[in-house]
Structures are given as structure tokens and as C-alpha cells.
């Protein structure tokens, strides 16, 4: 369902052209839990932005659910981000001075759904992301880091996207909270969501099913974790898929 063919991204810095991605190709199937790992400057963030339709590649093709994303216009990209992609930012990127509920409902703006429906869905997603009910009306800047990340995850879930992309989801969190957030992502994956996370921490990457390692703009290795565990996950996926719908 995600297919990259020879992705290249270069930036012009004055007269010097720097290549962040030098031809990357891979496939990710529906229901996978993938970590993209690499040191800083490896191009993993650039890759993430392209996968999230936040940026377009200089050359190469990116298919999401069979649609060539590299050829889409600004409005079509916006629609794609809203309908198919849930993004969890490293810096959380919540609207300050807005309540938790309002933040989660943000992607539903101008979508024609009723206020009541939006609130119901937001509450459902927040509970799903493990947020306490009592905090729903709190302002986002009054929350702790872990709580903010839960809100960000709930926001990523609200449109029931095909993939959830998380950019260093644990980057600003302590170890304990990191594991809780990873547990939440694991649960989402078990319920059928395709999840791609970006991280530079090996321990975090090892909590996923597949590790794509990027270095200097090319894929260094692509390893699948213990197949047995993955088999188990796939079988639970099928059961949970039916539950989710």
C-alpha cells in the first residue's frame, strides 16, 4: 500500500546542491509496524515528510494506496493528509490556548461533519489513545509531555487514516513515558493501523516489527523482526479489523 520508487530529494543551498535522499525504494504493506532508523542528517526526516505528503520529492515516485502522490497539487495533498495520513510530530505541534478536544477536532474543520459527531469521535480517539476523560477540557499548554503526545496521537487517529506516521514520537519523553507511548502505538497496530515511526534510538526501533535503516540518503538495511511474533500480530490484526469497523 506504500510504494517508493527511487525517491530523490535535493536542496539548493546557494549554489551548492545537497542530496538528502539519493534514490530510496521500498514497500510497506497494510498493517505493518515499521521503524525508520538512522543518525541525524541521514535523511530519515526528509523521507518521513515525503511519506506524510508534507513535502514532495525532487524525482522518483511515491504511491499511497495506488495513487501517485508526487503528481498531486497543493489542495489534493491537503485532502490526502486529512483523509489518509495521521501525523504525530516530535514537537507535538498542538494549538496553544486550545482545549484538548479542540486540538483533536482540528483535522475535521471544514469537513461538513456536525459538531456533535466531531466531539463524539474526538472523545473516542482520546480514550483510545489513553487520555483521561477529566483532561478533555484542559488547555493543551497545561499538559505534560506524555499527555501532549497522547493528544497528538488522538488527533492523528481522528480521520481513521490508512497510515500513522510518528516523527520521533518518544524524542521529547522520558524512558517510562516512551514505553507507554510505544505500547499505545503497538495497540493501534494490533487494531489494524499501519504505523511508521522515525527514531534514532535502537531500543525504540526494536519494539517494532520491521526496521528500515537509513544512512546518507540510502537504505542501509531492511530487517524484519522475529517472524513468529509478526505472525501472531497479523492474526490478531484480522480479528481486530472486524472489531474496528
Amino acid at each position: 500500500m506504500i510504494e517508493c520508487k527511487n525517491l530523490v530529494k535535493s536542496y539548493l543551498n546557494g549554489d551548492v546542491e545537497t542530496q538528502a535522499l539519493k534514490g530510496i525504494s521500498f514497500r510497506i504493506e497494510k498493517g505493518e509496524f515499521v521503524a525508520i532508523i538512522g543518525p541525524s542528517g541521514s535523511g530519515k526526516s526528509t523521507l518521513m515528510h515525503i511519506l506524510g505528503a508534507l513535502d514532495s520529492p525532487t524525482s522518483g515516485q511515491y504511491f499511497l494506496d495506488g495513487v501517485d502522490v508526487s503528481g498531486l497539487g497543493d489542495d489534493e495533498l491537503s485532502d490526502l493528509r486529512r483523509n489518509k495520513i495521521g501525523f504525530v510530530f516530535q514537537a507535538f505541534n498542538l494549538l496553544p490556548r486550545a482545549t484538548v478536544l479542540r486540538n483533536v477536532m482540528l483535522p475535521l474543520l471544514y469537513s461538513g461533519t456536525s459538531q456533535k459527531e466531531r466531539e463524539e469521535r474526538a472523545r473516542e480517539c482520546l480514550r483510545y489513545a489513553g487520555m483521561e476523560e477529566s483532561k478533555f477540557q484542559n488547555l493543551s499548554n497545561q499538559l505534560s509531555g506524555g499527555q501532549m503526545q497522547r493528544v497528538a496521537i488522538a488527533r492523528a487517529l481522528i480521520n481513521n487514516p490508512s497510515i500513522i506516521l510518528a516523527d520521533e514520537p518518544t524524542g521529547n519523553l522520558d524512558t517510562k513515558t516512551s514505553h507507554v507511548v510505544m505500547q499505545t502505538l503497538r495497540e493501534l497496530n494490533e487494531n489494524g493501523h499501519t504505523i511508521i515511526i522515525i527514531t534514532h534510538e535502537k531500543e525504540i526501533a526494536e519494539l517494532t516489527d520491521r526496521i528500515i535503516s537509513v544512512r546518507d540518503g540510502v537504505i542501509e538495511s531492511d530487517t524484519v523482526a522475529d517472524t513468529n511474533i509478526r505472525m501472531v500480530h497479523e492474526s490478531t490484526n484480522n480479528i481486530n479489523n472486524n472489531k474496528m469497523r
Partner: peptide, 16 residues
């Protein structure tokens, strides 16, 4: 500007 970026990132169209 960051707020505008965020709105765009979660899929709000430019026109809105």
C-alpha cells in the same frame, strides 16, 4: 506561521 503550518499539515486546505 507555525499555526498556519500545523493547520495545513493536518489537511486544512489553503483556501480555508
Amino acid at each position: 506561521t507555525r499555526e498556519i503550518g500545523l493547520r495545513k499539515a493536518v489537511g486544512v486546505r489553503k483556501i480555508y
